[in-house]
């Protein structure tokens, strides 16, 4: 658990610049809205996206990616993103109003 936290912390500080080769955090987060609603404000069933919680979001995505957090679909989706991309996603989400 401590190793995971340290790993997440590394991602938090490392990620954003390294992710510049791929899509921006904003572009990736916009694709989440198809299920989580515009700006992540889900109206029904699907959980809303948390704002201002960068570290928490990174940790959840890593848990999904490693199949440590039970899920129907997020584990399949999280495996599509590199750790740098997860950091960029969390970074953009953290800044959403």
């Amino acid at each position: 658990m401590r190793a995971l936290a340290a790993f997440a912390a590394t991602l938090l500080t490392a990620g954003v610049a390294a992710a510049q080769d791929g899509p921006s955090g904003q572009a990736m987060v916009q694709t989440c809205y198809v299920c989580h609603g515009p700006e992540g404000r889900s109206a029904e069933a699907v959980p809303a996206l948390l704002r201002g919680q960068k570290e928490f979001v990174v940790r959840q995505m890593i848990e999904f990616k490693a199949d440590r957090r039970p899920a129907t679909i997020m584990n399949r989706i999280a495996k599509s993103y590199s750790d740098e991309q997860i950091a960029a996603i969390a970074d953009y989400l953290a800044g959403l109003k």
Binding site: V34, P38, A43
Partner: peptide, 13 residues
């Protein structure tokens, strides 16, 4: 349930 949530949210998006 997520299918219905998807429908409502993609519609709003």
């Amino acid at each position: 349930a997520f299918a219905r949530g998807w429908y409502r949210n993609i519609s709003a998006d």
